[in-house]
Design a protein around this nucleic acid. Structure first.
Lengths: 227, 227
DNA sequence: ACCTGAACACCGTTCAAGT
DNA sequence: ACCTGAACACCGTTCAAGT
């Protein structure tokens, strides 16, 4: 608006488009992401984006690959267990920075059947860690399924701390919650009491994630020894 | 179009709206679901839907609750392990019927922080099974996180059989796949050979899911015994 | 040859006008 | 009081007109 010269601030590039798109999704969620809005943020006419991305789905693919590139490479000198552990925790840190990403990746899988190249590379190197650790191929196959499955079906981050969000106005009052969901309430109270925490859910998500990770890795280690 | 009488085929109701919406999503995915399309399928003007659902998000909530209601109730006379196992496998069967559901539930969690009432009830009864099986509260807490976590971050159903789908035209040719993703290729080949299967991925998703489930339940049982 | 404004076919939802 | 058509503010993408 106050821009004077005829020169663009920076030449438009695929990377600049992707970076802006990721930043917008981080801010407002993936629903707030539109081609028109990305163009606006870049000070460019919407159609200019189509020189650098074929269409919106291809843009989403590019965003995913950019994120997966943020995951730390595998540790060269470490046993399989710590190498897997580090890699998984690095992926988790990335996903916490970009909470919209899993839904986008899952939607793509549902529609197009093949993961993006960066996701394939991530999976490939994860398999490589297990193989280097002495796992037979079919045990690695099992291991990948174990690490990729979500047994409850849809509870991912159900207990995650959401105190930053405004409380849901439609949520039932606590006394009704306690009557309708007695087990859930007992669990929530016990956790809050354990941690001596009054604010928040009193649930250490990071610790719980690592608990799940270690339970799984221990189980796999046991299978490896008996194999 | 050929409808003659002035009488509606059936009176519009919230249930009829939700059922039609679920059917449309099952057919064409959640992206193909629009208020206008639902109305069209019901032979009704779009605005008529708003008498039965407040807005589209509330419609999605209603759809989720309808699906979660399809999950079998917990078995009354069974030890905790088989009761959890049956419940999880029942939830999986439901999700295979409605593959769009996890993404919708996850998106809602990201935006609104509280699960829908039916999801809360599902979690509550799952917790109840563990408690009845003698699990201390904090071990149940761990258990729920283990069963809800997805360690690879985004690989849910990465290896699922998608031979019904047309092959991705953008996918690289097999020889390039083998060069770029050697570990992945080795694994895919080994699995296909093991099962003597030429068509398809040669991967029994149901068996792999149950492998992951049993590994986890065995791990939890071990913790219960030492607690 | 490149760029881009207008246009097309959608979308969820508001609102005032019709009964 | 109820119902609904038109309208509003969006959306992704096509395409022809401008340079």
């Amino acid at each position: 608006m106050v821009e004077i010269g005829t020169q663009q601030r920076a030449p438009l590039s695929r990377k600049r488009v992707l970076d802006t798109a990721v930043a917008l999704a981080d801010e407002g969620g993936v629903d707030a992401l539109s081609m028109r809005r990305i163009a606006q943020a870049l000070g460019v006419v919407p159609m200019a984006l189509y020189k650098h991305v074929a269409h919106k789905n291809e843009l989403l693919d590019g965003m995913i690959d950019a994120l997966v590139g943020e995951i730390d490479p595998p540790s060269a000198d470490a046993d399989w267990k710590t190498a897997v552990r580090r890699r998984v925790l690095s992926a988790r840190r990335m996903l916490l920075r970009h909470p919209w990403a899993p839904a986008v990746i899952e939607a793509r899988m549902k529609a197009r059947a093949t993961p993006t190249p960066a996701v394939l590379a991530y999976l490939d190197s994860m398999i490589g860690i297990f193989r280097a650790g002495g796992f037979p191929v079919d045990l690695v196959h099992h291991a990948m399924h174990v690490m990729g499955s979500r047994l409850l079906g849809f509870s991912q981050e159900l207990f995650e701390d959401r105190t930053d969000r405004a409380p849901d106005p439609d949520a039932p009052p606590p006394e009704e919650m306690a009557a309708r969901y007695p087990h859930l309430t007992e669990l929530a109270r016990a956790v809050a009491h354990d941690e001596e925490s009054v604010v928040g859910s009193g649930c250490d998500d990071q610790a719980e994630f690592e608990f799940a990770l270690d339970l799984t890795l221990d189980g796999l280690e046991r299978l490896l020894r008996t194999a």
